[in-house]
Write a protein that binds this DNA or RNA. Structure first.
Length: 595
RNA sequence: GGUCCCGUAGCUCAGUUGGAUAGAGCAACAGCCUUCUAAGCUGUGGGUCUUUGGUUCGAAUCCAAACGGGAUCACCA
């Protein structure tokens, strides 16, 4: 049992026996004692004083005496302004360490769930940018955190591989591409296709200008430009399944997938299941029929189908076009059903930007109105946009940070900085490359994941690439330092058994801070799971690394002459390294053995 | 205009279901490498937690309003 529970239970008993008051455990506030005060854990007395009908100090004194007598590991207590600060015996922490010698672990959930995490969901008409990187890293990390708690997780991605935007790239390639290929131009497949998307836009804009110059108003010109009509025609031909169109579509998507695969591999993210919109875009129609039967939907004169959500404070929402084709929400209704049936899901988490909050609100509402059992099992992890100092990224204005460029730049910066510090002098070329990659990616991933996912964040190209302070490389460096100690120790004493003799050892402040952090890993992981927040994990890893560096500065491990203290410190080193490695892996960051 | 989100140090961000004197990093300044890796450590300066009311023993945290910023409200996806 964890201390928090023990203290809550004991306090409950104290109130029950002494005052006849029954209180929920959740009403008893136990917190870690703030650094400026003496103690390990603190009971907040104010809420209890109401029930004891004594003043806070008196209540604290009674409770303190009670806990001190009844709980073995409480050594002493101190009362400061209504806070009961409890100091634990050193042997409490020693025992915890001893229990941990076989490895760091945390508790899994009692009932594992089948959870699908939907993330990435790219369009196949242009390469990925910084916003996608945040999405991918978040989705991957959330999935890993859920797995770590014992859930069965399916990572999925719904690829947006059809629609007018794809036809635009296709058309531009047909008209201006002259049978070129990514190989011929030496471009990554997704960049190659993206180039033609831009090409389309360029020519399209020109046509609009010409039409406007000819006296047409702009809105009309946007609809009447020959290129857009051709693109729409192409979409129609795609939907009819014309082999010639499908062939080009397949070819270009193939190029894009090759490109994406590379980027995914660079980012270290993976998927268990891909859905393709070209397979699923017809799916929701039977649901529309059902909804019509149930009277949840209604048909307008022109044949379009709608749902009225005005009783929920929203508007009417279209679910099927007049011409019978699906809209975004239609196919999502269909794929939800498919997913729940296919995988017997307990939960489906969509990792999608907050600009789509409205969509998911509607999706959930419609599901509820249709009486779908999964209506309450849909969750939208709505993350904030990544802004640049110049504002929002806009692909049309060219103010996007390309994913591949950024990854490359991070790795190159890492390499340069590693060379400058002379860290690579003893490494061969392959090792150097691997290290630069690890450090560069750590910097990028940590930067994006240390911030609360739900919040908007700023990326400043000049300032955001940093390897010092609250960064991934800082944590990596700490790990490498520890590993260096452990390597040296093994050399001296090949028999690597760290055995803790339970003599009455005293923990220094620096050691205790580390041990306390190690102790709270369980709570931390649970919080990360509950909030779907990799940021919780990133912050923890950083705190731990910082605590270790402080310890490192003050105490020597290998030169310590008292064997029992040396062993204790070695164990702390081992556990810290292991914890750092495991937690950082949850956010997709690998640790180097040396750097 | 309706709905939703956000506002904490010069900058980027933490801050548990309301708890003690609001914390980190960067940037600035001053120190620490014959001693296990200085991508580290220590110290100094830096705050009306946007503002005003309310709730209460106690508010950065909850409620209301104002101001400022953002998203969204397509027969696009």
């Amino acid at each position: 049992m964890k201390v928090r529970e023990i203290l809550q239970n004991a306090t409950q008993k104290f109130l029950q026996d002494g005052f006849g008051v029954a209180l929920n455990a959740s009403e008893i506030q136990i917190q870690e004692t703030r650094k400026d005060f003496e103690g390990d854990y603190t009971v907040v007395i104010f809420p209890l004083a109401k029930h004891t009908k004594k003043n806070p100090t008196e209540t604290a004194k009674l409770l303190g005496d009670y806990l001190n007598h009844n709980i073995e590991f409480i050594q002493s207590f101190e009362i400061v302004q209504g806070f009961l600060n409890l100091k634990f015996t050193d042997s409490f922490w020693m025992e915890f360490l001893e229990h941990s010698t076989h490895g760091v672990h945390w508790e899994a959930v009692a009932k594992p769930l089948n959870i699908m995490v939907e993330y990435s969901s790219p369009n196949t008409n242009k390469p990925l940018h910084l916003g996608h990187i945040r999405n991918n890293l978040l989705g991957y990390s959330v999935a890993e955190i859920l797995k770590a708690k014992g859930h069965h997780v399916i990572k999925s991605s719904l690829v947006n591989d059809r629609g007018i935007h794809i036809c635009k790239s296709m058309l531009a390639w047909i008209k201006f591409g002259e049978d070129s290929t990514p190989e011929l131009e030496g471009l990554k497949g997704d960049h190659f296709v993206g180039k033609y998307y831009v090409e389309f836009d360029k020519h399209y804009k020109k046509q609009i200008e010409e039409l406007v110059a000819g006296g047409m108003d702009k809105a009309m010109a946007e609809k009447e430009a020959p290129l857009i009509k051709e693109a729409q025609d192409l979409l129609l031909r795609w939907e009819k399944g014309e082999p010639e169109v499908l062939k080009i579509w397949g070819l270009m998507n193939g190029w894009v997938y090759e490109g994406f695969e590379q980027t995914y591999s660079d980012l270290g993210v993976d998927f268990d299941k891909f859905y393709y919109e070209s397979d699923t875009y017809l799916l929701g129609k039977t649901i529309v029929d059902e909804g019509l039967e149930k009277g949840v939907f209604y048909r307008k004169e022109d044949g379009s189908v709608w749902i009225d959500l005005s009783d929920e404070g929203l508007d009417e929402k279209l679910v099927l076009r007049a011409n019978g084709t699906s809209v975004y929400i239609t196919q999502d209704l269909g794929t939800v059903q498919k997913r729940f049936e296919e995988y017997k899901l307990d939960k489906l988490i969509y990792v999608v930007g907050n600009e789509q909050e409205y969509h998911f609100k509607v999706l959930k509402l419609i599901s509820k109105k249709l009486g779908s059992p999964w209506a309450n099992q849909l969750q939208h992890l709505s993350y904030g946009m990544v802004d640049l100092p110049s504002g929002k990224m806009k692909s049309r204005e060219g103010t996007v940070v390309d994913a591949d460029d950024l990854i490359k730049e991070m790795i190159e910066t890492a390499e340069a900085s590693t060379k400058e510090l002379g860290k690579t002098d003893e490494m061969d070329a392959a090792e150097q490359t691997a290290l630069s990659r690890k450090i560069g990616m750590a910097a990028l991933k940590f930067f994006l994941l240390k911030v609360d996912p739900t919040k908007r964040m700023l990326f400043n190209p000049e300032q955001s690439i940093d390897f010092h302070g609250f960064t991934g490389p800082f944590v990596q460096y700490t790990y490498a330092r520890i590993k260096s100690i452990l390597r040296r120790h093994k050399q001296d004493e090949p028999d690597d058994i760290i055995k803790l003799s339970l003599v009455e050892l005293r923990l220094s402040h620096e050691e205790k801070d580390i041990v306390k952090l190690l102790y709270t890993i369980d709570e931390m992981i649970s919080e990360a799971e509950h909030n779907l927040s990799p940021a919780v994990v990133a912050n923890y890893s950083y705190e731990l690394a910082k605590a270790y560096n402080k310890f490192y500065q003050e105490h020597s491990v290998l030169k310590e002459l008292v064997p029992s203290i040396k062993n204790l410190r070695l164990l702390i080193c081992k556990l810290t390294a292991e914890t750092i490695q495991k937690t950082m892996l949850l956010i997709g960051i690998e640790m180097p053995e040396r750097m």
